[in-house]
Design a protein around this nucleic acid. Structure first.
Lengths: 317, 317
DNA sequence: ATTAATTACGTAATCAGTTACGCAAATATA
DNA sequence: TATATTTGCGTAACTGATTACGTAATTAAT
């Protein structure tokens, strides 16, 4: 089980928490050292009020990055100590405008020395370290703002999954999976049609022998996606992309994208210049995928499928 | 009140907390992404067990840096899920030995991919930043281990206070404070003696005119500490350090140290080679101070004070 | 062999935050 | 003008941690 030993950096969350605790734990005693009767958790609110004089509960919450009930509670505690005073906003009766009381302003005077010393202590630690914590936090905040950890992990997962997916040529043993995967989604959203059965029951005769191709996507050896390139006897298009199906088991693994990409490559290698496809706008993820791949909406082509309500083409560059 | 604007770095605690929150908040969803039924708070325990196979509650608590009740609760939750199993230690009936169950081991297999991806995501963030958070945390942990934030702040306070303290020569207007500060501590711990009154009621005649000195420490203009150097008619010692008194108001401000240091300098500038003093072991802070200044215990000198149970001397280098 | 101190650990109470919810005031919309 | 939506904020319930405390087992000291 020593696999875990190599995955150290996932512990960054824990390490951050522990450091936060260590930095924070002395706070109460530091106030005592300066004879200031204040709870550490009040400080951000206090600080915000000292800077801005007047603020409503919600403004304070936003300023210090807490929820408003948290601020509400803190204010009621500080009120009991007489450090702040409340007053209703004249023009907006919902707002509770909070400001430091005379006693609060006195405390803010007393606290100055403490802030100077704490600041000096932190600067000392910074000066003694090679790596700048303050700046590093800033960078992490920025980077996580740009893209959350969840999103980054999702990308990494997709990347790694892609490596596990192999796209291979159709073989007769895949006829069953080719059929079942397609039947699954077609009958989920629509009903199977005559033309479907022709292609799915006899891919060899109906697709391959006519100059088309079928590709299969395998994930860890298991076939979980299929896609066909049907030769078209048409002056305009070389192939039709059809019978694309991915198992629900493989959802979110990028199988559709890899499969479609491979089939386009195949068409390109065969000298095709234009690919056609038919779909239905109910199938939003599919439409998005086609769009991402460069397909553009076209109209006017006759189709044997009743479920077709959108037609698209891709000009191969 | 824009003073506060300049004291930015005290906010390091808040910034750390917020970053911790941000890094942590996606955790639950990341588990969901991999279809792993686990609460984020279980992970450290899980991880520790995956590395070491068997551990008691207390060992786990130490390993993950939580309190033991916290681990106790987590284990009982994981037990309900069937991820761990408990068993009493045979040789020590108090110990609750915990290990992963079969189901737990299965989860640990499933979780590997997730760890790889999370790790990759964190490495990506690290690679995109100039400042190294991971290393910076390590340095801070080390530095705070060496000396806590509280201790550092205390030092800064002392430094700053020292600057505010001035040591000046005795003037007649300080006779009252010289008397009252000494009476205060003497009568708190002992009773005033004949010799005390002589010196305190008439410092001019009893100390200064005989070739002695008195120094006064002022904190923000207010006299809060006194110390005398009494000329001795003795073949061995030049002066006696006596009547040192610091107001309780100035406790913790290093006044005693500065005062004693100044009086030793005074003696040195007068060509003294040995200073003597008398005290009582009840007065621990005072004895510590004398020790810190280099005074050594001696014995055998006759003394007029009944409260004296320790005698010390300093050889001036 | 008692007695005292220490250790392991579970339960209870507490704490500092959160989310959920509901009321009232203000604002937007029909 | 009536009605719906949004906003401000307080209360309540929950969460993940803590400290405090009690009990039982072990170890040390007399």
């Amino acid at each position: 089980m020593n696999f875990f030993e190599e995955t150290g950096k996932v512990a960054i969350g824990s390490r951050l928490r522990m450091l936060t605790d260590k930095v924070t734990e002395d706070a109460a005693q530091i106030y005592k050292l300066y004879n200031i009767d204040m709870q550490p958790k009040w400080f951000p609110v206090f600080y915000a009020l000292a800077q801005e004089k007047e603020k409503t509960i919600t403004e304070l919450a936003k300023a210090i990055g807490h929820s408003h009930p948290s601020v509400s509670k803190i204010i009621s505690e500080m009120l009991k100590k007489g450090y702040v005073k409340e007053s209703k906003d004249k023009t907006d009766g919902r707002r509770n405008v909070v400001s430091l009381s005379k006693k609060g302003v006195e405390i803010s005077e007393k606290i100055k020395d403490q802030l100077i010393d704490v600041n000096a202590a932190i600067e000392e630690i910074s000066a003694q370290s090679q790596n700048k914590l303050w700046e590093a936090i800033g960078e992490w905040e920025f980077l996580l703002e740009q893209k959350t950890l969840l999103r980054r992990v999702m990308e990494k997962k997709k990347e790694r999954d892609s490596l596990k997916i192999e796209i291979i040529d159709y073989q007769p043993k895949y006829q069953e999976i080719f059929r079942s995967l397609n039947v699954e989604w077609i009958s989920q959203y629509f009903t199977m049609e005559e033309t479907d059965y022709k292609a799915l029951d006899n891919p060899q005769g109906y697709i391959l022998d006519k100059g088309g191709f079928i590709l299969v996507a395998r994930y860890e050896g298991e076939p979980l996606g299929v896609c066909a390139l049907v030769k078209m006897n048409d002056g305009e298009y070389d192939f039709e992309l059809a019978k694309m199906a991915v198992s629900p088991k493989a959802q979110g693994k990028n199988v559709g994208f890899l499969l479609a990409n491979a089939i386009i490559d195949k068409a390109r290698s065969l000298g095709a210049s234009k690919i056609y496809l038919e779909s239905n706008t109910i199938l939003k993820p599919a439409i998005n995928l086609y769009h991402k791949l460069g397909f553009q909406k076209v109209a006017g082509k006759p189709t044997p499928y009743t479920r077709c309500n959108i037609q698209m083409e891709l000009v191969i560059g």
